[in-house]
Simulated assay, not measured.
Amino acid sequence: MDAHIRTLLTVICEAALEKKLVVDLEQLGAPGWTISDARGRGGRGVRSAGWDTEGNIRVEIICTRDIAERIAGHLQARYYANYAMVCYLAQVEVLRAEKF
């Protein structure tokens, strides 16, 4: 098995941002992403996934560290002040490096 190091950027945010985030990710060079519904509680209270735009989503992007940092920096500058959003980075090992 030949594993390669990449970075997993996870973004948890308001579902209303999904279309804007997809445009941002394409423009910032993300090789791909996965979006799923998310529920939970945080600093802005309890969020459910009962309504299309009132719940939360989880966006996961596996990419190089510099792309992950570029995306996270953009999201922080553009959305943190006005939207519920959390971003975190983790080092991961992938088996098909050419995809990321």
Rank of each mutant, 00 (worst) to 15 (best):
A68S: 10
A77C: 05
N82M: 11
A49V: 01
V92A: 05
G29T: 05
E69G: 00
V86M: 13
K20N: 12
D66T: 06
D66I: 00
G50S: 14
Y80W: 14
G32N: 04
Y80T: 15
C87P: 00
E18T: 14
A49F: 09
V94N: 07
I35T: 12
S48W: 11
Y88W: 15
K99M: 15
R65F: 06
T34P: 00
V94G: 07
T10G: 02
K20F: 03
L17N: 04
N82G: 14
L17W: 04
R65A: 12
K20R: 12
A49I: 01
V23P: 00
L75R: 03
C87T: 15
G42V: 04
R70P: 00
D52C: 11
R6W: 00
A15M: 04
V86H: 11
N56L: 15
G45M: 08
R58W: 00
T64F: 02
C13H: 02
H74Y: 15
S48R: 13
C13Q: 00
M85A: 13
D2Y: 08
V92L: 06
D37H: 11
T7M: 07
T10N: 10
K19I: 09
W51M: 08
K19H: 12
L28E: 08
C87D: 08
G42C: 03
Q76C: 08
A15K: 01
P31V: 09
A90N: 13
V59R: 01
R41C: 06
E18P: 00
D52Y: 12
I5M: 10
A97H: 15
D2N: 13
D24M: 05
A15H: 04
G43H: 09
D66P: 01
E98Y: 09
A81V: 06
Y88N: 10
G32D: 07
S48M: 07
A15Y: 04
A84P: 13
V11E: 03
L25A: 07
D37V: 05
A72K: 09
L75W: 03
E14N: 10
E54T: 04
V11H: 04
R47W: 14
I71S: 02
C87M: 15
V23M: 03
G43C: 01
F100T: 14
E14R: 10
V86A: 14
I67T: 15
R41Y: 11
G42R: 04
L17F: 05
P31K: 14
R47V: 08
L17K: 03
T53Y: 10
E18M: 08
I57R: 01
S48V: 07
R47K: 15
R44K: 10
E93T: 08
A72S: 14
V23F: 03
A97Q: 15
T53M: 11
I5V: 13
D2E: 13
M1A: 11
V46I: 14
T64M: 03
I62H: 08
E18N: 06
R47D: 04
I57G: 02
G43D: 05
E98K: 14
Y79M: 04
L89A: 07
R70E: 02
R96D: 13
Y88G: 10
G40Y: 05
I57F: 02
G73H: 02
E93L: 13
G45Y: 09
A38T: 03
G29K: 06
D37Y: 07
V86R: 13
A81R: 13
V22K: 14
L75F: 07
E69H: 07
L28Y: 09
G55S: 03
V86E: 09
